[in-house]
Computed example of a mutant assay.
Amino acid sequence: MTNHILIVEDDQRLCQFLASELQLEGYEVTTAEDGMSALEKVRESSPDLIILDWMLPKISGLDVCLRLRKTGITSPIILLTAKDEIPDRVLGLNSGADDYLTKPFSIEELLARINARLRHLHFPEKSDILQFADLTLNSLTREVFRGKDSIELTAKEFDLLQYFLKHPRQVLTRNQIIEYVWDFDFIGESNIIEVYIRALRLKLETNQSPRLIHTVRGVGYVLKNLV
């Protein structure tokens, strides 16, 4: 089955180049030049993956991400941008993007990230429901509950929690987390994992719920119940 990829890019030369390369790789490709057109084409064609420029006419790539996720569109989104600071990466990922690629980039790296995202798409997890203690995660509906309380998570927070739930009581290193959740290594020393762990803990520990994600100093993190 041929995968369908939507490219949303207002730079016509770059858009044509990407479309040609992806078609050579065997993908079906649709293009859009602005945010409004992107939303329309997603509704019309339901692409398997979306390559989305951050800076777009009419509606920004971030707003496109937010609108798609709010309407239940779960297609993987790779965000393209010249913004390369950590706060920009966090903002992009929290808006619903699954991956983040800074310009200029190599076509080989983009293809590798596309392949990684489509692998997750075509080889779903054996179990759709993951549970630990009073924590429940539904991989299909992307719902999370702590007891009877629903917990709203960003796309990356959900992916991070899902990874912990797949490996309960196992100490996960920073490198393992980055490889699974982000599919690539950040350059240099980044506190991106700490930022997401802190945000996840705040949401999971409301109503004085006991901590489940614990720090293993000098190694990584572990999901375990100390009670």
Rank of each mutant, 00 (worst) to 15 (best):
L91C: 04
D183M: 13
L135P: 01
V216D: 06
L137A: 10
V64L: 08
R43H: 03
E21C: 14
L93F: 03
F145G: 02
L56N: 02
H4V: 01
D34G: 03
A116C: 07
K148H: 07
I129G: 07
T215M: 08
L212E: 04
I192S: 08
Y221T: 05
R217H: 13
N138K: 08
G96A: 09
I7P: 03
L204E: 06
L202N: 15
E28R: 14
S46A: 12
N207H: 13
F17K: 13
K126N: 12
W54E: 02
L52M: 04
E189Y: 11
L62N: 03
I77T: 02
Q12M: 09
R201N: 14
V144Q: 05
L49D: 00
R211K: 13
C15N: 13
F17G: 09
I50Q: 03
V181G: 05
S190M: 04
D98L: 07
G92V: 02
Q176T: 04
N94A: 03
R69P: 00
S209N: 14
Y221D: 04
D11Y: 13
P124C: 11
D149F: 08
L22Y: 09
P57V: 11
I197V: 14
T102A: 08
D48M: 04
E189R: 15
N175G: 04
E109W: 05
E143Y: 07
M1H: 13
M55P: 00
T206Y: 13
R198K: 15
A97L: 06
P168L: 10
P104W: 11
I78R: 06
I151S: 08
P124H: 14
P57F: 12
S106Q: 11
S106P: 00
I73T: 02
E179L: 07
L93R: 07
R174C: 01
R113L: 09
